[in-house]
């Protein structure tokens, strides 16, 4: 699959949106540069699992990761981890698919920007799926069962996953997955998601999981947290959780 890269300036651009809507985004359109990029595949995958999407979002999430893993991950990161590449690809090669999946993008420029040309960062579903695909592929090698389990773990703890990858410190494949496994094995997923009661000093919407991450952050690099083994990480997580959730020890 071959397509041209967009020139910068297409974001928040009503002309660009109109060109997309009216099928005028041909390769010779002024919005494209002359730089051509090759993808080994043109297999579509879900690109958005936010509030506006109906249906089984978890399945979409897993489908997306699996397609990315099988069809796109072998490319250089300069392609599959690059905002401009994905945005160019979606509008050039996947127009029909994304319109079918997300018809709102034809109606509203805001929806289009939120679904198709969203900034490629931790809030972007494609970004998340690419990260998870890379991380799990490197972590589990050929263990398909473990892979599926990890995809599920990420989705089931998405708030925490978002919080981790939001900050550069722990945006590391091994760490993210190890951390989720620790949560799973310690069976503290619900606790980590829960809001901390009676602590107005911690600010709004403070959850145990986020506080645990913050404590680990404060310890870095006196403890090189991302390099801990899973068992070592368990100890640090329990220690950090105990600062905010004193019952944790007694209940167990």
């Amino acid at each position: 699959m071959q397509f041209k890269l967009l020139k910068s300036g297409y974001k928040k651009n009503a002309d660009f949106y109109q060109a997309f809507v009216n099928e005028r985004l041909t390769a010779d359109s002024e919005f494209f540069s002359n730089e051509v990029v090759y993808f080994p595949s043109n297999k579509p995958f879900p690109i958005y699992m936010g509030v506006k999407k109906k249906g089984d979002k978890k399945q979409d999430f897993i489908d997306a990761i699996q397609v990315i893993t099988s069809d796109y991950l072998q490319t250089s990161r300069e392609l599959h981890f690059e905002e401009i590449v994905w945005h160019s690809y979606f509008v050039s090669c996947q127009r029909e698919y994304i319109i079918e999946q997300y018809p709102d993008i034809l109606e509203s420029q805001a929806d289009f920007e939120n679904i198709v040309t969203k900034n490629f960062d931790w809030e972007n579903y494609v970004y998340k799926c690419v990260l998870v695909a890379e991380y799990v592929a490197d972590y589990s090698k050929d263990n398909a069962e473990q892979k599926l389990k990890l995809y599920n773990l990420v989705y089931d703890n998405l708030d925490l996953f978002n919080y981790i990858i939001k900050y550069p410190l722990f945006r590391n494949g091994d760490f993210v997955l190890k951390f989720l496994e620790v949560i799973d094995e310690l069976k503290i997923s619900d606790v980590m998601k829960a809001k901390i009661p009676n602590r107005p000093d911690l600010g709004k919407d403070e959850r145990y999981g986020r506080r645990v991450i913050l404590e680990l952050n404060k310890s870095y690099p006196v403890i090189l947290v991302p390099m801990l083994t899973k068992e070592e990480l368990k100890i640090e997580v329990e220690k950090a959780l105990a600062l905010y959730y004193p019952q944790a020890d007694s209940e167990k």
Binding site: K7, S8, G9, D15, Q18, R24, E30
Partner: peptide
């Protein structure tokens, strides 16, 4: 208007590659 705008922009770009385009 938008069709003419497109044609004008294309022409400006063709004639004037260093100016007018955002990046």
């Amino acid at each position: 208007n938008s069709e003419l705008d497109r044609i004008i922009k294309e022409e400006i770009k063709k004639q004037n590659p260093v100016d007018g385009i955002i990046d």
